[in-house]
Design a protein around this nucleic acid. Structure first.
Lengths: 146, 146
DNA sequence: TATAATAATTTTGAAATCGAGATATTTAAA
DNA sequence: TTTAAATATCTCGATTTCAAAATTATTATA
């Protein structure tokens, strides 16, 4: 442990990991109870809230390797929750488009999902949450650049 | 989205997830460059810093299923980085004990590991890190209780 | 226009993880 | 003491993920 900064950073890393894992453990239960795994939910929710996305963009946004995207999108397509749509401008590109069933599923799950997250965060005041958001945003953005 | 609190909580969840993943991605590279995967590192580091542990305790501490513990400990044992030691008091229990080679490896990796985490956190001031630690500690503890 | 470099997706094989069940041991209860 | 319940580890099969290579399409360059 070379210096003070390193010690603080290590501690931050530990509490960040613990908080993430503790929260995620609970969040995943709600999602899995709906018959999706966390990755499938992340993809569907992205499409629901942000509209059609090229597969590659999905991978970039939820941090998943290209091969895994193919796998997850296949599964969601087989379940009838999304469709692949060829891009007319660039034939390398394939868009994922959420289906009506997919929309219904997200509409079913999302309120409970949001409510649970709010419950899990309820130990912080609004001001503390806002402060945490700013700090973590800065951290995530700069860490992403290395 | 029912209310203001929920919206803030969802945003916090998102930035928390992204920060965690962005940081972890880099941290894992250092570990993998040393020939370990993140779980193997977590086990060895636990043994290094906290001493011998029953396999079951390892699983509890790094949140891994029993079947996975067997798998990871097997790998570390084959690499000569730890040994299984039978508990004389309770013949169901097996301790994992870090070997001299395992100690050497952690001593090799840990400084760089710590330095990299410090670098990844360098966009925050010491005060900001301390603030983030407090907020995340509170969050992780309360989320763990649900 | 060819050719090469870049880009998006898919394929493939290997690794990591989980959950359920199997085995062995210990503890508690009848 | 015998039985039942609980505990620790391991085995097995299935799922999820990644990394590298393959395929197809586009863009830039000679």
């Amino acid at each position: 442990m070379e210096n003070e900064s390193t010690a603080t950073s290590l501690k931050l890393f530990i509490v960040l990991s613990r908080a993430y894992k503790a929260i995620n453990e609970h969040v995943n239960k709600v999602i899995q109870a709906a018959g999706l795994n966390p990755t499938e939910f992340a993809v569907l929710e992205l499409l629901y809230h942000k509209g059609d996305q090229p597969l590659q963009q999905i991978g970039a946004k939820i941090l998943l390797a290209s091969g895994s995207i193919t796998y997850v999108v296949d599964k969601l397509e087989h379940k009838g929750l999304l469709n692949r749509i060829a891009c007319p401008k660039d034939r390398r590109v394939i868009y994922a488009h959420i289906s009506d069933d997919g929309k219904k599923l997200i509409q079913d799950i999302f309120p409970e999902h949001a409510e649970q997250i709010d419950k899990l965060m309820s130990s912080l005041t609004e001001e503390e949450k806002t402060a945490a958001i700013e700090l973590l945003k800065k951290l995530g953005l700069s860490a992403g650049k290395f």
